[in-house]
Design a protein around this nucleic acid. Structure first.
Lengths: 144, 144
DNA sequence: CTCAATGCAAACTATTTGCATTCGA
DNA sequence: TCGAATGCAAATAGTTTGCATTGAG
């Protein structure tokens, strides 16, 4: 089931409504590889739909996270970012501390080790975050 | 070199001053296994030193992070936490999403895999964060 | 003495909420 | 029609800053 269907299903099940704004926000959100903050997405949407409200964008992103088609990320710069999520395709991040570049990675062996750790401490893991911060190749070159 | 010496050295090198407040904050901060937010530490310190200012606590915690004896953590609840850091003793976290319990873990094999990933993407890693969120054994029992 | 640190209050930033109005089912 | 969603503005929460005063070196 794709993410649009997941969202529609969620809206239906909860007795919510499927507005024009929500569709527009969903399309723009899914149609980009970016890691949007509310601000980012709001600015982008405003160009095409000048009347859209910041609060609507924000509430909608929260709704996406709630229904599982997005995840909230926080890279420590004081902005919450939202990333479109593909079911069963979890990945983690390399973040360049100089230019802000974000690269995604997956590593099954790490996932397995995490499970071992969790069971060692009797934790029941729901989710995790794993981020590597440093310089990307370009910035490393520039900075010496 | 212990953390107090690291701090004193940093203060000296930068031409800063070693005030009474800073010593008190440092002692309290190091003397606990907690992951303090500014608010937490401020509240704790106020009991003994009612005149201490929130901004002083906050600036001092930032200073600790700056000189490398503390690290800023963000578990996604909107509060930045500071954790005393022991040089070369990096660890990661298990966070209980129900009761807030934080357990530390280290796993050398994961660290090694991280390095592999970084070199694969030509990143020069400065630091990382790795957090597993879920239910601790107590909460799993209660809820499940 | 000098300049950094402090404590207070005010400013800022990101996020969330209240409410009158609009709109989907 | 009726309650959810919207857009605006105002409120909130956490963090940061300006400034007069204090205090360390």
């Amino acid at each position: 089931m794709d993410r649009i269907s997941v969202f529609n299903e969620y809206v239906r099940r909860k007795g919510l409504k499927n507005t024009n704004q929500r569709m527009v926000i969903l399309e723009t959100f899914l149609g980009s590889k970016s890691h949007y903050s509310t601000e980012d997405l709001y600015m982008k949407l405003r160009k095409e739909y000048p009347k859209i409200g910041y609060a609507t964008v924000h509430r909608t992103l929260k709704l996406f996270a709630e229904c599982g088609i997005a995840i909230e990320l926080n890279f420590g710069d004081g902005q919450t970012r939202f990333e479109p999520l593909i079911a069963d395709q979890h990945h983690d991040h390399l973040v360049c501390t100089s230019c802000g570049l974000i690269v995604e990675f997956t590593e099954t062996r790490i996932e397995r080790l995490q499970e071992q750790i969790a069971s060692q401490y009797n934790f029941k893991i729901e989710r995790h975050r794993h981020e590597l911060y440093g310089l990307c190749s370009d910035c490393a070159k520039k900075q010496g």
